[in-house]
Simulated scan of single mutants.
Amino acid sequence: MGDLLIRNISDALKRDIAAAADRTGRSLSDEAKELLRRGLIAKSDIKPLDEQPAYDVLRAAFGADEGLGDDFSAVLDEIEAERKRDFGRPAMEFE
């Protein structure tokens, strides 16, 4: 994992990040990383993984943009077949 050094941060900005870190219970460094991550997501309109459809997450995991479409299709076919098998199962009973 790499390091990143950011120079010439105003005292006010550092205090704001430190205050946010205190509120969330994170270290100053971890809070800064989270703020950077959120800023990149907001700027690029990328949704966090927990807000993305499973299809998009799987597609990204298999690098569909790199020409792995056949592997991706095979995995989706397996998922769809398993999903269809689940329809025949009796519902679980909870007490």
Score class of each variant (00 low, 15 high):
Asp45Ser: 05
Ala18Leu: 05
Leu4Arg: 02
Gly63Pro: 03
Asp11Glu: 13
Ser27Ala: 00
Arg15His: 14
Val57Thr: 10
Asp56Tyr: 07
Ala60Ile: 09
Arg83Cys: 08
Ser44Pro: 03
Arg37Thr: 12
Leu58Ser: 02
Pro48Gln: 04
Gln52Gly: 01
Lys43Gln: 14
Asp77Ile: 14
Leu40Ile: 11
Ala60Gly: 12
Arg83Met: 05
Leu5Tyr: 12
Glu95Asn: 12
Gly2Arg: 00
Leu36Lys: 04
Arg85Glu: 09
Leu49Ile: 12
Phe87Pro: 00
Arg37Asn: 04
Ala54Pro: 08
Ala91Ser: 11
Ala81Val: 03
Lys47Gln: 08
Ile46Val: 15
Arg26Lys: 00
Asp71Ala: 14
Pro53Tyr: 03
Asp3Cys: 11
Ala60Glu: 13
Lys14Ser: 05
Ile41His: 09
Glu82Tyr: 14
Lys84Gly: 00
Leu36His: 06
Asp3Pro: 11
Arg15Trp: 10
Asp86Glu: 12
Asp30Gln: 09
Gly63Phe: 11
Asp50Val: 12
Arg89Lys: 12
Ser27Trp: 06
Gly67Ala: 05
Asp30Glu: 12
Asp11His: 08
Ser73Val: 05
Ser44Asp: 14
Lys14Val: 09
Asp16Pro: 00
Glu31Ala: 01
Phe62Gly: 08
Leu4Val: 13
Ala12Pro: 00
Leu68His: 11
Ala74Phe: 07
Gly63Gln: 13
Gly2Pro: 05
Glu34Ser: 07
Glu34Ala: 09
Gly88Val: 03
Ile41Pro: 00
Arg83Trp: 11
Glu82Ile: 07
Ala60Asn: 08
Pro53Trp: 01
Asp86Pro: 02
Phe72Arg: 07
Ile17Leu: 07
Gly67Met: 04
Asp65Met: 07
Lys43Arg: 14
Gly69Gln: 13
Arg15Gln: 14
Ala74Ile: 04
Ala61Lys: 11
Gly67Lys: 01
Gly39Met: 05
Ala54Tyr: 11
Ser27Pro: 01
Phe72Ala: 07
Arg85Cys: 01
Phe62Thr: 13
Asp71Pro: 05
Leu13Arg: 14
Val75Phe: 15
Pro53Ile: 04
Ser73Trp: 01
Lys33Phe: 13
Asp50Asn: 15
Ala91Gln: 14
Ala60Gln: 13
Val57Ala: 06
Phe94Pro: 06
Arg38Glu: 06
Ile6Gly: 08
Ala18His: 10
Ala81Ser: 12
Ser44Gln: 10
Arg26Trp: 00
Ser73Cys: 02
Ala12Ser: 02
Ser29Ile: 02
Gln52Ile: 00
Asp56His: 08
Glu51Met: 06
Arg85Ala: 03
Asn8Leu: 13
Leu4Ser: 03
Leu13His: 11
Ala18Cys: 04
Glu82Gly: 08
Lys43Thr: 10
Pro48Lys: 01
Glu34Trp: 05
Arg89Leu: 10
Gly67Ser: 05
Ala19Tyr: 08
Asp70Lys: 15
Val57Phe: 01
Ile79Asn: 00
Lys47Glu: 06
Lys47Thr: 01
Glu51Ser: 09
Asp22Met: 03
Glu95Phe: 07
Leu35Met: 10
Glu78Lys: 14
Asp11Lys: 11
Asp22Lys: 10
Met92Ile: 13
Phe62Glu: 12
Ser10Cys: 03
Phe87Lys: 02
Asp22Thr: 09
Asp16Lys: 02
Asn8Trp: 11
Ala61Pro: 10
Leu5Asn: 14
Asp86Ile: 09
Asp3Val: 15
Lys84Pro: 00
Asp56Ser: 07
Ala42Ser: 06
Leu35Arg: 08
Ala91Asp: 12
Asp30Ala: 04
Glu82Gln: 13
